[in-house]
Design a protein around this nucleic acid. Structure first.
Lengths: 216, 216
DNA sequence: ATTCTATTCAATAACTTAATTGAATAGTTG
DNA sequence: CAACTATTCAATTAAGTTATTGAATAGAAT
């Protein structure tokens, strides 16, 4: 085989990956799958698409070996294949968020308040949690917490916050996180807690960001 | 704007990136551009494609803001926009190499000897260079060395090795690197040096891998 | 065994992407 | 400023991608 054929073969294989993530709906699927396993039906509802189309997109991701399927009862649950996939999705999002002012503008328009809320990054959290009293709460749905969460975070799903906020300490800073910057749950939690005179701040990074920092 | 429109907008923007890298030739271009700036003509020759087609691919990458163009004399030189792009390309390659046995097989078929050569990783190099006497040589063309190289590496382009090998020390381990695992230059260098009774080994990681480890 | 249900498959039509060609352009060089 | 040259543009054709629909399937549940 000539050298150019060799290169074509290699980049052809690599483009099986990039081809698979080239579609907006498939990026959305991968982003959802980064949090937990989902059935096809759930995913279809979440991304606003017919079950058949969703299934086809999942097939594409499966053939590229970015996701895996397993049956559980009547349902088939999909999940990301491994951390390399998380890293790839994360690299795309990092690039996108730093690059495209459009995304930020869209998000800001959607929720003016969100940007006025105090927020910290994962790194700041790490530093500060050594020095001061901080309580980290994960406000995502319980199944997502169960399938992985930041160490020492406790689960208080957003809908439960109104019942459980009284148990929270007033002398600690409460840091709330959810799926990531695109998710509004942590923001809602912080607004609510602040209205109840807690010292609450948001962290935009999510579990996946934390997880990826652990290994390296 | 409804929440679903918002999401569509966000993932639509992200897919401008993934769409741009979805093509094998464009992946190859990005990989080349990771090493240094290239003119359209040079790139066209390297990827075996007409200048017009190459230019069109570069336009796509430029619109997605993955690369930048600047004029220099009669030529227009392209370069990657920033480190986020390097990280993205690197994430794709990492995933590809670990995932697709096909790639490895293709490479192995192409050069049986390459896999029998002793080689080390970047991390091993870092560790060992504290303890033993190691000389690191960069065997890429001089312009690539000039546009960035691993700290403390000295430049000995492969074609010059036959003239200059006599100046190399026999009491140190010589580690040679080039563009990365797909590149054969370091391998050639190691084979040559070993035949001259030097203790030479290859490192498959390249400058880009090193650079990306510096920041994080 | 039969029913039920989540998922997948197949066919289609609208749309997008890609390589090729030859012409146009913009900017440098003499 | 005229000639030159690297790059880009535009038009075309072929190939690939996507959403939609309705039918098929595979496996679990009863």
């Amino acid at each position: 085989m000539a050298s150019s054929e060799l290169k074509d073969k290699v980049y052809g294989e690599l483009s099986r990956i990039t081809q698979a993530i080239s579609n907006p709906k498939r990026m959305e699927l991968l982003d959802l799958l980064s949090q937990k396993s989902w059935s096809v039906e759930e995913l279809a509802r979440e991304i606003n698409m017919s079950v058949a189309s969703t299934s086809q997109h999942l097939q594409v991701l499966k053939v590229a070996r970015l996701v895996q399927a397993r049956r559980q009862g009547n349902f088939i649950f999909y999940q990301v294949a491994d951390d390399h996939v998380l890293r790839l999705v994360s690299a795309v999002k990092d690039l996108g968020f730093t690059r495209y002012a459009e995304i930020d503008r869209v998000l800001q328009d959607y929720n003016e308040e969100s940007h006025s809320l105090e927020s910290i990054t994962l790194e700041e959290l790490m530093k500060r949690s050594g020095k001061e009293k901080i309580m980290l709460i994960d406000v995502r749905p319980p199944d997502e917490y169960a399938s992985g969460h930041i160490r020492n975070a406790i689960s208080i799903p957003l809908p439960e916050l109104k019942k459980r906020f009284k148990d929270l300490p007033k002398d600690k800073t409460i840091v709330a996180y959810c799926r990531g910057p695109l998710c509004v749950m942590a923001q809602e939690a912080v607004k609510f807690l602040n209205s109840k005179k807690f010292k609450a701040i948001r962290m935009e990074d999510g579990y996946v960001d934390w997880k990826l920092k652990q290994v390296s």
